[in-house]
């Protein structure tokens, strides 16, 4: 069970970020912060990812993209919104094309504030996300267990 927390693979998607947060996300991979210490890999492939990092807010153009990426990820999965733009639209909130934060499209599990979010905060957010990931995995086991129990009772 603990294993799911030991190998979180990330997928990073840039909504309509100003690139500030993206650079901070990539900074996490550098020797200075080295997230691979925690087994974290930046995959770039939704089918391999456990944690979906979104930077920047969702706009009319990329709404369907965000939704599709989310749907392609296998359960259990966690969404981490990085930076105030991804949290609620931030500085771009009033723009005509902006829908708002990522949670207007897909469920968000962890909100990492900041403009730009610092690498430490991003790593902290991902580590928080690991807790949620483990919970979701446990919930999956419960779901799998229930039908067999009822089946037994019926029999």
């Amino acid at each position: 069970m603990a294993n799911i927390k030991r190998s979180p693979w990330l997928l990073h998607y840039d909504g309509s970020s100003c690139n500030g947060c993206d650079i901070e996300v990539l900074a996490c991979l550098t020797p200075m912060y080295d997230v691979e210490r925690f087994g974290i890999i930046n995959t770039g492939n939704p089918k391999h990812a456990d944690i979906f990092l979104v930077t920047g807010s969702v706009n009319a153009q990329n709404e369907s993209v965000v939704r599709q990426i989310y749907e392609q990820m296998p359960e259990p999965k966690v969404v981490v919104a990085i930076g105030i733009c991804a949290n609620n639209g931030g500085i771009f909130r009033e723009c005509y094309n902006i829908k708002g934060g990522v949670d207007t499209v897909i469920p968000v599990d962890v909100y990492v504030p900041g403009c730009a979010a610092r690498p430490e905060a991003i790593i902290d957010g991902v580590v928080k996300g690991l807790g949620v990931l483990a919970e979701k995995r446990a919930a999956m086991d419960v779901k799998e267990a229930i039908p067999t129990n009822t089946a037994k009772e019926e029999a």
Partner: peptide, 12 residues
């Protein structure tokens, strides 16, 4: 850890 995790994920 990676392989065990992959084994436990939802199968699409």
């Amino acid at each position: 850890y990676d392989v065990i995790k992959l084994w436990k994920k939802q199968i699409i």
